[in-house]
């Protein structure tokens, strides 16, 4: 069985690099998108095994992207971890309502992120 693909949608290069570095020593294949719209497009094209989406993104928010992916039967089953800002209480609630499988508050511990990834999409 080939390696699992993870799509990371995040507009900040440093935060993308953290995940990139975090997953470098794992078997996961990482693809990236810098905004919500291209994130949704990439997900539809690549059909990743898991998606990590920041809640606040240019062009389309992480919540809208999650909703769009859930609405499409081709991508509806893909687990999505939404990274919330914890800014306004209820972010977690909103993430769940939009269809997120899991959420993590920023700043997250890379260790915890990896645990969540492994739980939702176990390494081959």
């Amino acid at each position: 069985m080939s390696a699992k693909t993870i799509l990371h949608i995040e507009d900040n290069e440093f935060n993308r690099k953290i995940v990139r570095d975090l997953l470098a020593r794992t078997s996961y294949r990482l693809i990236e998108a810098a905004d919500g719209e291209s994130g949704v497009a990439t997900a539809k094209r690549e059909r990743p095994n898991l998606i990590l989406a920041d809640i606040q993104l240019p062009r389309m928010s992480g919540l809208d992207a999650t909703r769009a992916l859930r609405a499409d039967p081709e991508t509806a089953h893909i687990p999505i971890i939404v990274i919330t800002s914890f800014a306004l209480s209820g972010d977690d609630q909103k993430a769940r309502e939009a269809g997120a499988s899991h959420y993590l508050a920023k700043p997250y511990s890379p260790r915890e992120l990896l645990e969540a990834v492994r739980r939702l999409a176990p390494e081959a």
Partner: peptide
Amino acid sequence: MSHELRTPMNAILGFTEL
């Protein structure tokens, strides 16, 4: 603001942990 502050904090703390 909350998001903007957290984004660099995430990078700082994340890289430190890594």
